[in-house]
Design a protein around this nucleic acid. Structure first.
Lengths: 222, 222
DNA sequence: CCAAAAGTGTTATTGATACACCCATGC
DNA sequence: GCATGGGTGTATCAATAACACTTTTGG
């Protein structure tokens, strides 16, 4: 078995990123306006072709830096999409990743040619090029699932946050509300949080205790 | 952005399959002996190059039929492995799938050139070619995780089975034992099983009721 | 009657849910 | 002093875990 036969596919490979953030009480996803055909002028997930000798993860981090200006984020391989005609030009297989970035950490992207970026609410994303809507849906599903059995929310919060911030994240992403007392009990019982001793005062009300996640990898709860 | 630049990778694509079955109280995985370089004579996961115009899933099903002689099984995309030097010949990206087959359903593979197949216990698999050990480990992890929150065990059992068969599957795969009464209570309470009314008599003991899964997709419990 | 696997209920513990008021601060 | 969000406890219910004996069959 080798590649000398013409019958074997040698497709181009892209990585496409579903980059989430939360701002203004909504889950947002980064989209780029396409400068070239196909789907010129349409919106798509940020992505790029895999370079020679580049690992998939390195390509994902490269795109992340180009488009979101952030190298250090939660990044996870999502799924590989490879239907033969998903790109009208030629065979292109894409390895999709999803990333989480706290809104506060977003920077201007370094790339100059990408001027058209936007962060729509996930629920109001426009039509997307290729099969990117399917990729987006897959990512949203995965994010929601992981909220329930991991501390992945870590990737969306700043270093320090209040329990109200944390609860709001869950409510925004899962689209449901929680009882404040039960929520706090559960979070504190998980053992993943630690008090910082600092208090956060903003606005005309009682200042809230700031917490941070203990330094550890993503953990699966239950 | 297109493929006219030499800097973009156009790798060969393979699909590799982690095909599990349970027999003789052990979780087994299908391996093939490599007939060609690299790693000639060594063991690897069954796999094959992606054909022109073929979808990834179609390629996975093709390999499944060639190597395990079975087209109808539980099949799920696992992960895509693409480190630049994972294949010593050239850049090869592999999309790994994992499959579950009830031991009873296994047939002789159609392929004639593949004479060297074996089904070692997962815990006693030999050294594997490429990064296949990593792929295998990833698959085992995923299988174990899914046992806990889905009815994926469906893929390893024959149409009809006893509650003891079911419990044994869980115990073999998860490597732990369960209390019989609690296990049966949980399974029956899940609502996914139905009695067939038939009884299974084999050996000198009381015959057991046969159950089957209700016709439905893979379901996530809890 | 013996060996082997099937089948069955109750209690204790743990985790999840429902629910309402006082506190600290800025203006 | 009032508006705003922060912070707290208890009672009920549901799910899980621990635990041992009787039943049916073949030989």
């Amino acid at each position: 078995m080798n590649t000398k036969y013409a019958e074997y596919e040698q497709p181009s490979i892209t990585v496409d990123l579903v980059i989430f953030t939360v701002n203004n009480e909504m889950l947002k996803v980064l989209l780029t306006k396409r400068a070239e055909a196909p789907f010129e002028g349409g919106w798509s997930l940020p992505g790029g072709f895999l370079f020679k000798g580049e690992s998939l993860e390195a390509a994902a981090l490269r795109v992340l830096k180009e488009k979101a200006g952030v190298p250090n984020v939660y990044l996870e391989q999502l799924y590989t999409f490879g239907k033969p005609n998903r790109d009208p030009r030629t065979r292109v297989i894409t390895v999709a990743y999803f990333a989480l970035i706290p809104w506060e950490n977003l920077n201007q992207p370094e790339s100059t040619k990408i001027t058209d970026l936007k962060w729509p609410d996930v629920s109001q994303a426009p039509r997307l090029a290729f099969d990117h809507k399917e990729i987006l849906n897959t990512a949203v599903q995965r994010l929601r699932a992981k909220m329930n059995y991991s501390n992945i929310v870590y990737g969306l919060l700043p270093e320090q946050f209040t329990l109200s911030d944390l609860q709001k994240m869950y409510e925004i992403i899962l689209g449901s509300t929680f009882d404040k007392r039960n929520f706090r009990k559960r979070m504190l019982a998980s053992g993943l949080l630690q008090e910082t001793g600092k208090k956060h005062a903003l606005g005309a009300h009682r200042p809230a205790m700031l917490y941070q996640f203990k330094k550890m990898e993503i953990t699966f709860l239950n």
